[in-house]
Simulated assay, not measured.
Amino acid sequence: MKTAVLALPLALSGLPALAEEVNLYSYRQPELIAPLVEAFTAQSGIEVNVAYLSEGMVERLKAEGQRSPADLVLTVDAARLKAVVDAGVTQAVDSEVLRAAVPEGFRDPEGHWWGLTSRARIVYASRERVEDGAVTTYEDLASEAWKGRICTRSGMHPYNIALTAAYLAHHGEAETKTWLETLRGNLARKPQGNDRAQVRAIWAGECDIAIGNTYYMGKMLEDPEQKAWAESVRILFPTFEGGGAHVNISGVAMTRAAPNRDNALAFMEFLVSPEAQAIYAEANYEYPVSPEAEPSELVASWGRFTPDDVDLMALARLRPEALRLMEEVDFDG
């Protein structure tokens, strides 16, 4: 059978009924999902129909209600998973396979969402100007030693809001505000660009360290124009004092409507298998959540880390406060 991969947001609504199918709404790109659905269909004979959305997933599911053709939603970022659950458009899934493969910190206690891959918010450091291990904690970023030496993208970006929420969870509002003010004072330039642009700035000598996500290293290395940027830096894995490295996840949830529930569950369980974990994590240079799966050789070469144990949904709830603090310190100004 041929896997049906549909790129248009409205494509699923007009599909004819198939004997064995599962319908997926995805915020993740086609190149990440196609290898997974092809492998699942080859193994199970179940067709996977994917509608790729850029926005409006929750609104669409609420509008469709019980008539929704979607069985599953696939997205990145714990806050987006929380938004889907809070909207009341998902259902709990009870599966021994899922519980065995997904550690407690990477799944909803009630079974509404399940993590698939993780990425760490790390420090890119100049190989020429920064010693290995020079940054060991996120708290270190406020050190006088980094005055005028740090680059980052906008503090308002979800990646940095999530990191700030994690800082809040560890230190509370007063200390977090002080940390943000001092970090802002350590910047070499006004926050701008994306995570890759920060690595380019290190390569160009504009700053010595930058905050970014792990997987961008892989994306830069595969781009001939950006490979030199990547090779100019090393990855450092800071932790919170008394905690671990800040991580975020991609995850899957079953919709409340789920017209093909059994097939949807079969696909969910496939996604946490060692085979699928390897495919998915390697495609986007992320870390598998299953302890039975190994990261790709390239990702493994960056080193291992201990994820922070702060509940991801607790961090999602702290995001409004983190955003408020970013605005109060005028981080981007």
Rank of each mutant, 00 (worst) to 15 (best):
W203L: 07
T137N: 10
G115E: 13
R129M: 05
R127Y: 09
V48W: 01
A83Y: 00
R153L: 07
P288A: 12
I202D: 07
E321L: 11
A300H: 07
A197P: 04
P291M: 10
M268W: 05
L36C: 02
L98H: 04
P288T: 11
E38Y: 01
S301P: 07
P30A: 11
V102Q: 01
M254A: 15
M326G: 07
T117N: 10
E294P: 01
P238A: 07
L168W: 05
G133I: 14
P307I: 00
A100N: 07
Y215R: 13
P320H: 10
A245S: 15
Q198C: 13
E181M: 09
A11D: 11
G185D: 11
V310H: 01
D223H: 12
P103D: 08
G88N: 05
D208R: 12
E269K: 06
V130P: 03
K82D: 13
E175L: 13
S273E: 09
R317T: 03
W229G: 01
Y287E: 12
S26C: 05
L221P: 08
L298D: 05
T255G: 12
G65I: 01
N160D: 09
V123R: 07
E286A: 15
A266G: 12
T41P: 05
V289R: 06
F331C: 02
R261F: 05
E139H: 08
Y52K: 03
R99T: 11
S232P: 10
A316L: 04
P295Y: 04
M57E: 14
V252F: 11
K219R: 12
A283F: 06
N248K: 01
A322C: 08
V252L: 15
S126W: 10
L10T: 11
R319G: 00
E64Y: 01
K227F: 04
V93C: 10
A162F: 12
E294R: 14
L32P: 00
L72I: 13
R80N: 06
H157D: 14
A166Y: 13
S290P: 02
R149D: 03
A79R: 04
A314T: 14
L187W: 05
L141C: 09
D308G: 00
N186S: 09
M156N: 08
A79L: 04
R319N: 03
K147F: 02
C207A: 14
Q226H: 05
D330T: 02
L36H: 01
F40L: 04
Y216S: 00
R261Q: 09
W229S: 05
L163N: 04
P238H: 09
A316Y: 00
E328D: 06
N284D: 15
L81P: 03
F240S: 07
R80S: 09
R317W: 03
I279M: 03
H112R: 14
L318A: 08
G333M: 08
F267V: 02
N186H: 12
A197Q: 13
G148Q: 10
L312N: 05
N248P: 06
C207L: 13
L221T: 10
R119C: 07
A245V: 11
L36W: 01
V89W: 00
